[in-house]
């Protein structure tokens, strides 16, 4: 089982990425990461392995972010690109569009393309049906493709 310090070092970047891409606001993302670690500390869950631990943390932070966004009503889409400016025009264009996607679509795309989870694993993390996740990804990709095509015409 990881110690608190090990846990922070191991997962802070991953959790921060999820939270920041979900909320779009640095302070909110930091709060969500910290709250996730504190939830772990309070629950001290027994994990079967490291993957299980990682999936648990992802699930907690996604739920926390969902609750926060619901409470706030909107996300800070612009701030993410202010804090981490894009290096190229294509990157800027893509990330602006990614941030326009609904949070669920964005989370699914992040977990699939960046973290390398399968749709089945994403379904477990996001507490959704696998078919729903596939649908989110299909829609997300199609929307991104459509937007990119529109912008380049």
């Amino acid at each position: 089982m990881s110690t608190a310090e090990e846990l922070v070092s191991k997962y802070e970047n991953m959790l921060y990425r999820v939270a920041l891409s979900h909320t779009g606001i640095r302070e909110d993302a930091e709060d969500m990461v910290q709250e996730t670690f504190l939830r772990w500390l309070t629950a001290r869950p027994e994990f079967e392995n490291e993957e299980h631990e990682k999936a648990w943390l992802l699930r907690v932070i996604i739920n926390l972010c969902n609750n926060l966004v619901k409470k706030r009503g909107r996300r800070g889409e612009i701030e993410l690109l202010d804090i981490y400016p894009a290096k190229t025009e294509e990157e800027q264009e893509l990330m602006e569009l990614v941030m326009k996607l609904p949070p669920n679509h964005r989370d699914a795309i992040y977990l699939f393309y960046y973290e390398g989870y399968s749709t089945k694993e994403i379904a477990e993390i996001m507490d959704a049906e696998e078919s729903t996740v596939r649908s989110w990804m299909l829609r997300g990709r199609r929307q991104l493709k459509g937007w990119l095509e529109d912008e380049r015409i």
């Binding site: 990425r17 910290q34 990330m95």
Partner: peptide, 28 residues
């Protein structure tokens, strides 16, 4: 590819790392 490269750059800086550790120590 661009998406991955961008996400790679989102990292916790030193001061954030310290804040997380401090919060965990206090809570522990």
């Amino acid at each position: 590819k661009e998406y991955k490269e961008y996400m790679d750059r989102i990292r916790v800086d030193e001061s954030q790392h310290e804040r997380f550790l401090k919060a965990m120590r206090e809570a522990e």
